[in-house]
Design a protein around this nucleic acid. Structure first.
Lengths: 217, 217
DNA sequence: AGTGTATTTCAACACTTGTTTAATAAACTG
DNA sequence: CAGTTTATTAAACAAGTGTTGAAATACACT
C-alpha cells in the first residue's frame, strides 16, 4: 500500500492521485487507507517518512566517517558533499523502483510551497544542520550566509536530478541521460565544492571590480 | 482569469486547484474556461506560455548584449549565467505578484515528471540551446557533456530559488531569506561559473587521485 | 473449544470534479 | 436598423472525490 502510494504520488503529486487508484493498485479495499493511516494526507506523510529515516542514518554515518578519516584535519568540501549526496544517488540508481519513485517524490515536495516547508523541514533539516556545521568548518572565516545559499543551490541541483524528467536527454541529443546518476555522482560534488569556494572567496561588494555580475548595462 | 489560474496553480499545482476555484477568484462563470481555452489543461498551458515568451525575448537580448560587449573575445562564464538568470530573478523580485506566482509555478513544473518534459522543453529549450552554445565557447576544449550537466545543476538551483519555500529562513535562523532574490543574483552566477570551471578542469577518471569523490569507504 | 480484538469488506454517504447544453446578452457588421 | 457572430449565464450532466458505518471475516489467546 505504501509502495503503491509512493509510485503514484511520485508521478502526479498529492492531488493528482485518488485513494481509489492507490488501493486498486495495491489490491486492497478503499477504506483501509483511512483505517490504517487516518486519511489521505497522513498516508502521504507516511510515504515520505518511511525512507527518510533510513537515509538520514546512512548519511550521518557517512558524514562521521568522512570527518574521522580526515582527522586531525578538516575534510575536503568534495567529500562532505559526497557524504550528503552519495546515499541518495546510490539508492535512486540501484535501490530498486521504490527508491526511484521516492526520490522523484522528494523532487516534487522540495519545490512545492505547500509540502516543502512541512515535510522537508521536518524530516531532513536536523541532518542538514549537521552538514552545514561541517561545511562551515571546511571554509573557515567564510560568512555563514554563503554556506546557507550554497546549500540551497546544492539541494536544488540534487532534487532536479532526482526528478529525471529526461530533459537533458533531449537537450544534449542523447549525449547525457537524466537516469545516469553515476554521472551526477562524479560531477555534482566537484561542481558544488567549487561553487562554495567561489562564494567564500568573494570580495566584499564595495570593492568589487566593475565588470562583476551584480551590475549590468 | 489567467491571473487567478496562475495564482492558484502556483500554490497547489494542476490537480490541486479546481476550475471553480479559479473562476470564482476571477469573478466569472465556470463555463468560460472551457469556452475560451478548451479545458483545464489548456488553461494551464496558456498560463505557462503567456510569460515564457516575454522572458525568452528578454534573455536572448541580454545574451546578445553580453556577447557583443565581450567582442572580439568570449564573455565570462559569470556574465553568460547572469544573462540567463537575471531577467528571471528581476521579474520575480520586482515584477509584481503575478510574476512571483509564475516562477513558483515554473519551479513545480520543472520538477514534475508529468509537465516538465512537456512545457519546459517546449517553451524554454530553444533558448537554452543558444545559451549552451555560448557556454561551450566560454569553456573551449571542454567535453560538452560537462556543460549539459552544469546547465542541469544551474536550472535546479535556480528553480528551487523560485519556489521560495522559506526553508533557508528556518535553517539559517533568519540569516537568509528565500525571498531575497538579490542575494541569489549576487551569488548564483559566481557559484555556477566556478562549478563549470571545475567540471571542465576535471582530470579523466583513470588518472584521478585516490581520495577523489567517485570512490568511497 | 470460544471469547475478544483486530482487520477487512461492502455499501453508501455528501460533496466536488470538468465539461456540456441551451438560453440569454453583448458586440460587431453591413 | 436588422442580421450575425461572439460572449456570458445558469442549470444540469455523469463520473469521481475522501471518508464513514455496520456487517463480516480473520486472528490471537486462555
Amino acid at each position: 500500500m505504501l509502495d503503491a502510494a509512493e509510485h503514484l504520488f511520485a508521478r502526479n503529486g498529492f492531488y493528482g492521485v485518488s485513494v481509489r487508484e492507490i488501493t486498486e493498485l495495491a489490491g486492497v479495499d478503499v477504506a483501509l487507507v483511512s483505517y490504517h493511516f487516518g486519511g489521505k494526507r497522513e498516508l502521504f506523510a507516511a510515504v515520505f517518512r518511511r525512507r527518510a529515516e533510513i537515509l538520514n542514518l546512512e548519511r550521518l554515518a557517512l558524514l562521521q566517517e568522512v570527518r574521522g578519516s580526515a582527522l586531525p584535519g578538516i575534510p575536503a568540501l568534495e567529500d562532505i558533499v559526497t557524504a550528503f549526496t552519495y546515499p541518495l544517488l546510490e539508492r535512486s540508481a540501484r535501490g530498486g523502483p521504490g527508491w526511484k519513485s521516492y526520490f522523484a517524490l522528494v523532487a516534487q515536495v522540495n519545490n512545492s510551497p505547500e509540502w516543502g516547508p512541512v515535510l522537508m523541514t521536518e524530516h531532513f533539516d536536523p541532518l542538514v544542520e549537521k552538514f552545514i556545521a561541517v561545511l562551515r568548518e571546511a571554509v573557515p572565516g567564510c560568512d555563514p550566509r554563503e554556506v546557507y545559499w550554497g546549500y540551497q543551490f546544492l539541494t536544488g541541483a540534487l532534487t532536479l536530478t532526482f526528478a529525471e524528467t529526461g530533459r537533458i536527454d533531449k537537450l544534449s541529443g542523447g549525449l547525457c541521460r537524466s537516469s545516469d546518476l553515476d554521472s551526477v555522482h562524479q560531477r555534482l560534488p566537484r561542481f558544488v565544492a567549487a561553487g562554495f569556494r567561489a562564494l567564500c572567496a568573494r570580495v566584499p561588494p564595495a570593492a568589487r571590480p566593475p565588470r562583476g555580475n551584480s551590475r549590468r548595462r
